[in-house]
Each structure stands twice: as C-alpha cells, then as structure tokens.
Design a protein around this nucleic acid. Structure first.
Lengths: 236, 236
DNA sequence: CGCGCGGTTGAAGTTATTCAATAGCCGTGG
DNA sequence: CCACGGCTATTGAATAACTTCAACCGCGCG
C-alpha cells in the first residue's frame, strides 16, 4: 500500500498524542466551507503563497504534499512543516505570510480568501469555533512533533520524521508498513535540522540495524516499528 | 553551510521582528476580562498546572517568570517556553494540559476558568476574536523564536535566547542593555536543547569574544548588540 | 565548619559536519 | 541508439562541535 494517495478519512488513525484530534473530525463547518470553493491544482514546485506577500487566502490541502519554509540570512533553508491532505494552512498568519508554501508534488487544494472567511465568521459561531479548533490543533502539532526535534540526535530526528509521515500517510507505524517519503533528502534535512549527508547516513544506519529497509531511496519499509517509535521519542 | 537548496536572496528576512505585536497591545477585551479576576500569586517552584491534568483554566501572567515543560521517556526535560508578564497561557490546549507550567520566580497572574471563558465568548465577538488573536500570536512566537533553534549551533541558540529575553524584558537588544537571566543554566539548556556545560562554555565564549560581559552568572550586559543579533539569526 | 548546590572549566570521547569522490537516474541532443 | 550533463543520493575521510565524565570553585545554610 502506498501512502501517497489523497486523503482517506477512514484510514486516519490516532497513533501519537491524545490531544491531536483527527483532521476529519474537527472543524467540520470550516471544512465544509472550503469544499464549496473551487478545487485548485498546483503543480510540483509551484508556490501556494510566498513569504512577505499579503496573507489574503487560506488553504485546505486535499491531495499531494506541501512544504513551508523560510531562509536564514546565511542562506540555509528552514523547513517549518509539511502539509498533508486534510491540513489547513493560513489561518494562523497575520497580515503577511511569514513562510513560503510550495507544492512538493502535485497538489489539490481549496482556496478561501480571508475576506470571505471573515465575512462568514461574523454570522457563524460554528465557523468561529472551528477557527479556534484549527489553530489549537496546529499548536498541538508543533509542540508534539516539531518542538522535540531540537533536543534529539540524528537517529531520533529521522525516526520522528518517519513516525510523522506514517501517521499522516494514514497508517500507524507498524511492522511491514510502507512509507513513501515523497520528498528529497534536502527536504528531510531542512525539516529535521541536519545535513543531507547525515540524513543519508542515518537511513543507512537504520537499515543496517534492521529497523527499516529501503527498497528505493523514496520507499521506507518498517521492519521494527517498536524500536523505531522508541527512537523517535528518545533523546541523545 | 553552502546554498544547497534553491535560495532566493530577495526572500530572506530576519525572522524575529515584524509580525510580533506587543503582548499588551492585542487582545484587549480578553485582557480586560482577566483583570476582573482575582490576582493569584505563585511562589517560585510552585506549579500553575500539571501535565495530564484537566485543562480547566487559562492564565494571564502579570509578573515573574514561568516555564512550561515535559519529559522525554528517558528523563530528559524539554522546556517548551518561557512565559513572561503579558503572556497568556492555556487557550491553546485541548482537554488536558500537555505540559507542566511552573513558576521560576514568584509569579503574579490572573486565572480564568475555561467554563467562564466559554460562557462569555458566546456573547462577545470581541472576546472570540481576541482568542484567535492570542492563538495566532502564540504560533508566530513558536515559528519565530523556537523553530529556528533546531537548526542552530550552540552560539546561535544562546544568542537567540538572549535576544528573546531582551525583547520580553522590555528593551531591545542594544549595547549597554542589561539582561537578567532569572533562570538556571539547566533551564537555559533545556530550552535551547544543549547541555548545561555547553551553555556555560558558550557564555564564556561570548564573554571572551567581547559580545557580552557577565558581572554575575545571572546578569548579562550586552557589549556588541549587532554581532549578538546577527549570531541569533545565524546558523552553523 | 562542612555539606550541598549551581556554575565553571578541563580532557576525552562521541556525534555531526564538511569536503570530496562516486554511483545511479533521467532527459536531451548528437 | 547511446553519450553526455545535470541532479540526487550515497559513502569516505578529516575536521569541528557538542557531550560526557570529572574536578573544582564559590556561596549559602544548617
């Protein structure tokens, strides 16, 4: 089974933290509103929005994969998050987009202008509350998935990414699960905060240790889920 | 580090400044509501709320300093954030507190039950919108202050912390500015993701390089603000 | 006084990065 | 068709960075 398929509600599982609600179960009104919009495609490499532009639209991703990033002054890229089918992005910003969002693979999404959203919110308490729910979920994801990275060593960081991809791919991280990375080593490195080479070496190490196999550079097969999960929750 | 990812110089911005509004200038209704509550003191080391408890209250910090943290399975502490006077905490949580919040120094704060807040929100669009504002601000702080840490080396991480403390101390990071750390080396280490020893050595290094002086372990005097700020925005 | 605790420093060991070289893949053009 | 160039991934070797383990200092407190 490939995990690249567009969002399948039934496949979503709650593996990691209890405070993460499932995307399909929260913010129903907001999602319904999105689905009234026209489905907008973005080819791979196309930009959904650019850092510094007026933040006048929000997006619901329905298929594909998006990265949000900015650059350090010295040119190194910081990848803030991956956006998966079911994710909403844009609600959290002020006047201006603080990141660039770019399709890694072909993306389908619904686009809603902030103006529209604000107008409709005035008349819908459900929508207002969905807004809050969605923002809360985003903070929870940041705290649970991203914040620990700064304390972890290379193995743990890569394992953590795999666990994130498995969860958002729709299956939990269990033996035999297949995870399609669908992103370059550079993306992985810039997300977890390592160099490309270290990411490569870490994959090789995980492979040699029998935690995963790597049929192609893009396909990870989980061989020892418990140890992988433990690693993702470890520190040095 | 070289420019291995596509890099557009025009897209580079310094991550800290513009989208951060001052805490005292936003969410006026919400803050007003807090100020109708009784001022609650917490002595140093006392817990405002504990990880796993039902998240039934939110707080506005008015004095002192609070840390929020959780532990890795192996016992290492991850310090999620520092809460400064003006900061609101608790709005972002679901049913259960995902962190423990603990006073580092004596704290004064207003406490509001979630029940109260929810009731009042039903009748105040201003309050609802303040809620959203406050959540957005929290995400912005996470993205601007915390997320970059995972890509930075020791010097940059410590410099970043100093810049955060300076800003929240009410003064910008300029030459002659004095920053009271008001927290232990362990707190700093667990926030920036280093060991205590590395934090110590980094302070010594910054001192030897003439960027700061350290009259006492708790007092930082800024000697070269531009270089310190540049460092905080640097990467390896 | 002496004990404990937080902070600092030294030396050795480990981990990640850097620089460099190679392999594999794909698309283009001779 | 096949060669070539460009790009991504991988691996090796040397270096730099951070951690670990250990010792020591200074200070407050019983």
């Amino acid at each position: 089974m490939l995990l690249r398929s567009s969002f399948d509600p039934a496949a979503v599982t709650t593996s990691i933290p209890s405070r993460m609600e499932r995307p399909t179960e929260d913010a129903a009104s907001l999602r319904a509103l999105f689905r009234c919009q026209k489905l907008t495609p973005f080819e791979a490499r196309k930009v959904l929005f650019r850092e510094g532009d007026r933040a006048d639209a929000v997006f619901l991703i329905v298929s594909g994969l998006v990265r949000t990033y900015r650059f350090f002054p010295n040119g190194r890229r910081v990848l803030a998050r991956f956006l998966f089918p079911g994710d909403i992005v844009g609600l959290e910003f002020g006047d201006v987009y603080p990141f660039t969002a770019e399709a890694i693979r072909d993306v389908g999404c619904y686009r809603l202008t902030v103006r529209q959203l604000e107008l409709l919110c005035k008349h819908s308490t459900a929508l207002q509350s969905d807004l809050v729910t969605s923002l809360r979920r985003q903070i929870a994801v940041g705290d649970d998935e991203i914040l620990p990275l700064k304390h972890q060593n290379a193995d743990a960081r890569v394992a953590r990414l795999l666990s994130i991809l498995a969860r958002h791919g729709g299956c939990s991280l269990r033996n035999g699960a297949r995870i399609e990375l669908a992103m370059s080593r550079a993306d992985i490195a810039d997300f977890v905060g390592l160099t490309i080479e270290t990411v490569c070496r870490t994959f090789s190490k995980l492979k040699n240790d029998g935690l995963i196999s790597l049929p192609t550079p893009d396909d990870v097969q989980v061989l020892n889920a418990p140890r992988l999960l433990a690693l993702a929750e470890e520190e040095d």
